[in-house]
Design a binder for these strands. Structure first.
Lengths: 193, 193
DNA sequence: ATGGACATGTAAGCCGTTACATGATTTG
DNA sequence: CAAATCATGTAACGGCTTACATGTCCAT
């Protein structure tokens, strides 16, 4: 059986999105900015290219839709073949996730680099994690106020959001640990005054 | 100023590795399997290609070393230009990390896929996280038995290891949450008997 | 003799980013 | 009148993977 390799899943991410609702390439790009973009990024260029390939492969079909006061759009829908491919995907073993962290490389470069600049990077990253975390928490509050009563069709999306939340929380705590180890946390600053 | 884009950092990962110790391409590939490979993967093919480009750019130099009973090797060392580039890298702002998780796509595909297969995937992933976590914990015990007394030149490596540890811990807990939400955790299985 | 570790590469092709290109409509 | 939003693409380039290619030494 074919193993799912990271980097090949853009098609599957699009299939999931279209299985939830038909959409144009433009719509998909915006969805990838918002909900699915929490764990997957894709530019519109890439999406158009992949959609073309997928249509040729019979996984999706498109229909031109005229609009008033706006350009026409091509609305893509998932086909039965696409649904079958998606089901196959969930059955394929997941390969190991490839980690690629510029941040970790930078940390590792600490003895050869600029310590103050690194501290500034870590602070910025900490703040970004905090902001994203707050955003995710707001989403949970808004969309899943009662986690014990989530409809089965929303469970996957909820669990992904929970994963994002955990990732941000973990990243935030890591940054705080780093700042403390570098003697650059806020308590150290207060003591230095 | 140039922003550090994920996907361009293989050069910097190699520079860090060579700054710590000169090595052949083969050595680097093995290092990437072991220590640095905790947060960065690279194949030997890719490494040879990048080393060639870096040598042309003056970031590294190579010296052929004859060995007895083994093929000759080309040992690469970092140059002053390479060290300057590495320092610049630590000063460059870090771009947002791109998340690409096949696993999250699969989770999100839950309503359109095979639930049992997904549960099996999650269990496998949970076990992998547990194994990697144990490995990292052993490394901490072995190399940093006293975290309050870490030499400054090892601090970056230690903090990266801590990050890996946190990531694995977080991934493990997420898997457990997923299994529980799917009614597939061990307590549910016991209750079902 | 078979396979694994050591050692270094080339070639083909996909994936993805950046830059470029076009054109209408709405908002400030 | 400039900018943002809507809408869809092409072209060039670089990163990375997979497959292919070669050759030695050592252990079983």
């Amino acid at each position: 059986m074919r193993t799912t390799v990271p980097g090949m899943a853009l098609e599957h991410a699009i299939l999931v999105s279209l299985a939830e609702r038909s959409a144009s390439g433009y719509d998909l790009a915006r969805r990838f900015d918002a909900s699915i973009g929490r764990f997957w990024k894709a530019s519109h260029q890439q999406i158009y290219k992949v959609l073309g390939r997928m249509e040729a492969g019979g996984l999706v079909t498109s229909e031109a839709v005229a609009q008033e006061g706006r350009p026409d759009k091509k609305v893509y829908s998932i086909t039965d073949d696409g649904r079958a491919e998606l089901a196959d995907f969930t059955r394929a073993p997941t390969g190991p996730e490839v980690l690629r962290s510029d941040f970790a490389v930078k940390l590792r470069a600490l003895p050869f680099g600029d310590r103050d600049a690194l501290v500034a990077s870590v602070r910025k990253r900490r703040d970004e994690h905090a902001a994203t975390l707050a955003d995710y928490e707001a989403s949970v509050e808004r969309f899943y106020p009662d986690p014990s009563a989530i409809a089965p069709e929303h469970l996957g999306a909820y669990l992904v959001l929970r994963g994002g939340l955990r990732t941000e929380q973990g990243g935030l705590e890591w940054c705080e640990e780093i700042l403390q180890a570098l003697g650059a946390d806020d308590s150290a600053r207060r003591a230095a005054r």
